[in-house]
Amino acid sequence: MAAFPDLPKHSGSGERDAPTQLEIKLRRKARFNAALRYTLLTVVGLIMVYPLVWLIGASFKTNAEMFSSPGFWPKNPTIQGYIDGWQTSTPYTFGRFFLNSLWIIIPKTIGTAVSCTLVAYGFARFEFPGKKILFASVIATLLLPNVVTRIPQYLLFRDLGWLNTFLPLWVPSALAGDAFFVFMVIQFLRAIPRDMEEAARVDGANTLQTLVFIVVPMLMPALISVCLFQFMWTMNDFLGPLIYLSSVDKYPVSLALKLSIDTTEAFAWNQILAMSVLALAPSLAVFFLAQKYFIEGISTGGVKG
């Protein structure tokens, strides 16, 4: 038989000392504790995830079955909810609303990533007059409830003639209006030593080249987190589009879901639920694709600041 030199000698052989009473007791206790812990966590986890499971199950039910049986498993599974829901009661299919959502999200996310990087780089790496006051105002906007600025913002965008366009949704983010992201990137940047940037400057890179070739690659985990958050939050944003968009052909998914509640005579819950499941899909897909970087980003950004 081949030897396994890296295994401890006594494993598998009878030489090992018999465990003492105390060891047996401790082991039993540890096993019991673990079982208890995992049971509790599993139960709580199931409770948390149940609405989602129910949502998915219910989207395959008929409208009649929806509230008649409490279980999540459909008796007669059907995809009629998806078919009807996709058609909507408007001249557009749900595909149009998905495209609208993407058309809002993609420029907004790119704008956020670019503007946050520029602003955070400025705050984290340069000294300039009024830096402290400016930084304090960035943090202050972080603490300011969104509701407070809604009306002045609305008036401003109305005067600019941007109502019923995507501009009010894009422009604030493209100008680093999301203070939370700026703050997050600053914290991440502060944890990165400056030596690499100095080396790049000695190598002849100007400020922009240093940012693009050196800082941005090192910031990648944080930027992926920023994009992911922005993607999910924008996908789920209801109030913004509700305020600024008035024609149905510009509605994103979040508004479109509400639309089917408003306009359908008898609520077709199975259609609403089916479209809700579809609405969840992009966020989930993006999250799982970027999960590794995302977790790296928030943990590094948060801890090392």
Partner: peptide, 9 residues
């Protein structure tokens, strides 16, 4: 540099 400062990526 003291800590090499190589570009990590």
């Amino acid at each position: 540099f003291q800590n090499y400062a190589l570009y990590p990526h």
